[in-house]
């Protein structure tokens, strides 16, 4: 697979390590009433779709940026690559 890095252009997926579902960006509020329940779901449960999947890849052998890659789990086709930082900011995160 070739991941089209937003800053560096097309890079071999071998340069990256894989973390999992991009929902992992959204860590629950540790002060919430049901924080234990939320963290259980955050840590252990997955949508695991057959089809389009937004997922986190880390450019370990490159610029060490985290990317959100939209990839089809049935065809392995990659349709979109964003910097995870941009995704988090677009969701209202400040840092």
């Amino acid at each position: 697979m070739i991941i089209n890095h937003p800053l560096l252009g097309p890079r071999d997926a071998q340069e990256f390590t894989y973390l999992g579902d991009a929902a992992l960006i959204n860590r629950p509020d540790w002060q919430a009433e049901d924080a234990a329940e939320q963290f259980y779901a955050y840590q252990y449960l997955r949508d695991n779709p057959a089809g389009e999947h937004r997922e986190l890849w880390f450019h370990e052998g490159g610029d060490r940026s985290w990317l959100v890659v939209t990839r089809n789990t049935v065809t392995h086709e990659i349709s979109n690559v964003e910097l995870a930082r941009d995704v988090a900011r677009s969701q209202g995160r400040s840092k």
Binding site: R46, P49, T73
Partner: peptide, 18 residues
């Protein structure tokens, strides 16, 4: 192998990735 997509039909999220 297909547990995720089958059990999603019952509204379940599993501690599993395929």
């Amino acid at each position: 192998g297909s547990s995720g997509r089958l059990m999603a039909k019952a509204g379940m999220r599993l501690p599993i990735e395929s």
